[in-house]
Write a protein that binds this DNA or RNA. Structure first.
Length: 309
DNA sequence: GACACGTGGAG
DNA sequence: TCTCCAAGTGT
């Protein structure tokens, strides 16, 4: 959960997961659907699929016990270089140094590394591991991460409180907050599309499941045209609708920004029936809470519902 | 190595 | 309002 996500955001999800699935066996026994639903709003949904798959691998192939080496952990779904090292060090006291974004920043400042990220990753990891084998690997890692999270912060670092300030090369430059250097980011493209909000004779809405892989994988959605640089015309959208007829455009636009592109969606409302899609279901608005609806789709629903009032 | 992959809080 | 970025991983 903490991969690319703040502790504050994760907290409630973590407690909810632990309450509902207190151990690996319980999570392994859960349906992927339940897990995705519980994950909704947390983002990076591949993590939810990996977590679930990981629980099943540990339950089925490791007798419910996690491998206790970095190498063994590394083979599990969703566990990469950082998490394998972090679990090995913190849970199993293995002599290794996980390197997360916090530690990269601390090292970049301590040594005033001018090479920009992401190219500098290898160098920063070498620096973090260059202090010798830590006597208490878990504490060493968490000390550095917490230093980064609370004092050596991305903006406005509190150098006056930093136990390492006298050794910090970036502080000597007078602008420690300018480390680590980063390559300039490219501008995000904008994509556009048209969403189909289709209602049946008793007021239920048509939703379907997205493909397992890729963007919002496995989450539920309202059908839409492709999202491309140019939105299709309304005529084309109506012609290609997977379900529905008697369309009316809902005024306004739904906007959402993903990691790598902006999205602008128009919505058309229509009436329909039937099951054009294996993964499609008709569902009352009141039941949306039972679906794994990503934030984008909640915005769409909110947009349509507010337009009706 | 580069890119895809969400979301919300902070400044 | 807008940019930045967070206990990264998989392809």
């Amino acid at each position: 959960m903490l991969q690319q996500t703040t502790v504050i955001t994760v907290g409630p999800y973590y407690r909810s997961f632990l309450g509902r699935w207190p151990n690996v066996a319980a999570l392994a026994a859960a349906e992927l659907d339940e897990v995705l639903h519980a994950w909704q709003g947390l983002g990076y949904y591949a993590r939810a699929r990996n977590l679930h798959k990981c629980a099943r691998v540990v339950a089925d192939e490791y007798g419910g016990k996690f491998p206790d080496t970095e190498e063994g952990l590394r083979t599990l779904p969703g566990i990469g270089a950082y998490t394998a090292a972090a679990v090995a060090a913190i849970a199993f006291d293995r002599p290794t140094v996980p390197v997360d974004g916090n530690i990269e920043r601390v090292m970049a400042r301590l040594h005033a590394v001018t090479e920009p990220l992401p190219g500098a990753k290898t160098r920063l990891a070498e620096l973090a591991r260059g202090y010798g084998v830590p006597a208490r690997p878990g504490d060493f890692a968490q000390a550095l991460m917490d230093l980064g999270a609370t004092i050596c912060t991305p903006r406005n670092p509190t150098c006056a409180l930093c136990p390492l300030s006298k050794h910090c090369d970036a502080r000597g430059t007078g602008a420690p907050d300018e480390f680590p250097k980063r390559l300039p980011k490219g501008k995000k493209p904008t994509r556009k599309g048209i969403v189909y909000w289709v209602e049946d004779s008793i007021g239920r809405i048509y939703v379907r499941r997205r493909a397992e892989r890729g963007l919002l994988g496995g989450m539920m959605e309202f059908p839409s045209t492709e999202w491309e640089e140019r939105s299709p015309s309304l005529a084309v959208a109506k012609r290609d609708a997977p379900v529905g007829q008697a369309w009316h455009r809902v005024p306004g636009i739904v906007e959402h920004t993903f990691t790598h592109f902006h999205l602008e969606l128009s919505v058309i409302r229509g009436r329909g029936e039937g099951h054009p899609d294996d993964s499609g279901v008709w569902i009352a608005v009141e039941e949306f809470k039972d679906l794994a609806l990503p934030t984008l789709m909640k915005k769409v629903a909110g947009h349509v519902l507010s337009a009706l009032n």
